[in-house]
Design a protein around this nucleic acid. Structure first.
Length: 458
RNA sequence: GGCGACGUGGCCAAGUGGUUAAGGCGGAGGUCUGCAAAACCUCUAUUCGGCGGUUCGAAUCCGCCCGUCGCCUCCA
């Protein structure tokens, strides 16, 4: 039985989907800049959830949205002197490039707020008709006082929030905590036609509308970063439950922790290149980035430190090489390695609210056992298959990082390895070592195992 | 002020009432090797921020203190 921690109840709960298909909604990004490693963290966590649910036999319908109308987009467009559509198009493309680079599978649907405008407007109308929202000067606000359990997700109550509010409160609203569902048009801003005049949606409503449209009025899992609990998810719950009359909007609320920045590694003003996913992927493999993230539990706050990603690079290489070595060796004559215990450990760990650090420990232990058994000429082919299967659930490719530009082709490496073999046979050690140094410099390592020589890109 | 998270070996990080405190990285020694690399073996926290308390028994529960951090109207 899979157990997941539910932010709403603050407990781990048995996971039982409502229907045949798990309905999962994950808050996507507002597309005004490159994806950073914090986005990567969230994407990877919910990618692993998606993959594990599938591994456990569930069908998953996953929706991850793009918020493509927002103040920050408009500001960015103005700053860059281009249209807001150019900004959103550019960064949606960049988002997919990052996601693909991280081996994050596509969601079933990636809706955009601007493409679901009729649903957004219809949802707002429904809220007005039900008395849960009201129009004011061409804008529409949600009536927070109507929802007696408002604040149940974040543990806040309205009065406390207002006392401490640091922002400027818009005047004219019935209650300062009422939030905008629709914003009346301002000059030079994107606008859509609506019953309340030209304008654009508020921040939260698009997620409710897209969840309703693509999944239904009640869903199984809603995910996102911890920073979205308030106000975004709190308001999503309020407007969704008011509109549908059904509670809860989502059975489980899952929130990933946020990155911590290592001391002394302040990532400059824009948090710099190390923070940018596409730049990080030039320096590290996707497997290393995933391992760095998955070695911490998803609800903690992983430390962003390039040294740690580098450590993960060496670490995942061990797994990759264990599998490669198992493939390279002829099937041993010995007993097949028993792997059932490792698979069970992996599943028990993952069932426990996605305890990926424990799941990884099982994989590392299996790799060690496999290397040992291989030396003893046992049959490790099934074990290697299990490693492949389990690492795939965590989204690892086990592929070597792309070769550097000054690298050799496979055929060239093979030729050099042959030349070295010949030199070794004649005990011309200096010649043999020169070849090895040459390959080593190009990031290719050589291993002599028995009478075989195996090479691999690091 | 309110809501909340966290402090485990050199670094990262599981574990949350009871065998010898997972795993990774790093380090030391060894096996293998022409020498290496990789792999494997051994070692690397009598101890879990501090002080009290509950208990037969606590890293795990309670209290206080110290320290770090997030959110509190538009950040994953």
């Amino acid at each position: 039985m899979i157990q997941l921690y539910n932010s709403l109840t603050r407990k781990k709960e048995d996971f039982t989907p409502m229907g045949d298909e798990v309905k999962m909604y994950v808050c996507g990004v507002t597309v005004y800049d490159e994806s950073h490693l914090g986005h990567a963290l969230s994407s990877i966590v919910f990618d692993v959830l998606d993959r594990y649910l599938e591994y456990r036999g569930y069908k998953v319908r996953k929706v991850q949205n793009f918020t493509d109308v927002d103040d920050k987009i408009i500001n960015r467009a103005n700053a860059d002197g281009v249209s807001w559509e150019q900004i959103t198009e550019k960064y949606i493309e960049s988002f997919f490039k990052s996601a693909d680079g991280l081996n994050v599978r596509r969601a079933t649907v990636h809706p955009k707020a601007t493409e679901d405008m009729p649903e957004i407007i219809a949802l707002i109308e429904k809220l007005i008709q039900g008395g849960d929202a009201y129009e004011l000067n061409g804008s529409v606000y949600y009536r927070v006082r109507n929802k007696s359990d408002y604040g149940k997700l974040s543990g806040q109550n309205i009065d406390q929030m207002l006392d401490a509010s640091r922002g400027e409160l818009e005047s004219g609203k019935e209650n300062p905590a009422d939030f905008a569902l629709w914003k009346a048009v301002k000059p030079d801003q994107p606008k859509w036609d609506s019953p309340w005049g030209d304008g654009r949606p508020g921040w939260h409503i698009e997620c409710s509308a897209m969840a309703f449209k693509h999944l239904g009025e009640q869903i199984d899992i809603h995910g996102g970063g911890l920073d979205l609990i308030f106000p975004h998810h709190e308001n999503e719950i309020a407007q969704s439950e008011s509109a549908s009359g059904k509670t809860p909007f989502s059975n489980v609320w899952m929130h990933n922790g946020l990155l911590r920045i290592a001391n002394g590694q302040e990532m400059s003003k824009s948090l710099g290149n190390a923070f940018n996913v596409n730049s990080a992927l030039e320096e590290f493999s996707s497997d290393a980035i995933r391992l760095w993230i998955l070695q911490s539990h998803y609800r903690t706050n992983p430390l962003l430190d390039k040294k740690l990603i580098g450590d993960a690079e060496r670490s995942i290489r061990r797994v990759r090489q264990a599998v490669q070595a198992a493939d390279a060796v002829e099937v041993g004559s010995g007993e097949p390695l028993d792997v059932s215990g490792f698979k069970r450990r992996f599943e028990e760990a993952m069932d426990d609210d996605l305890n990926t650090p424990q799941a990884l420990a099982a994989i590392f232990d299996l790799c060690r056992k496999m290397n040992r058994a291989r030396t003893d000429r046992a049959d490790v082919s099934a074990a290697a298959e299990v490693v492949r299967e389990l690492t795939a659930v965590l989204g690892f490719t086990l592929e070597a990082p792309p070769q550097s530009s000054d690298g050799f082709s496979d055929a060239e490496v093979d030729a050099l390895v042959e030349r070295r073999k010949a030199a070794r046979a004649e005990k011309r050690w200096a010649d043999a070592d020169a070849v090895r140094d040459q390959l080593e410099a190009a990031g290719i390592s050589i291993s002599d195992t028995g009478d075989e020589t195996i090479w691999a890109r690091n």
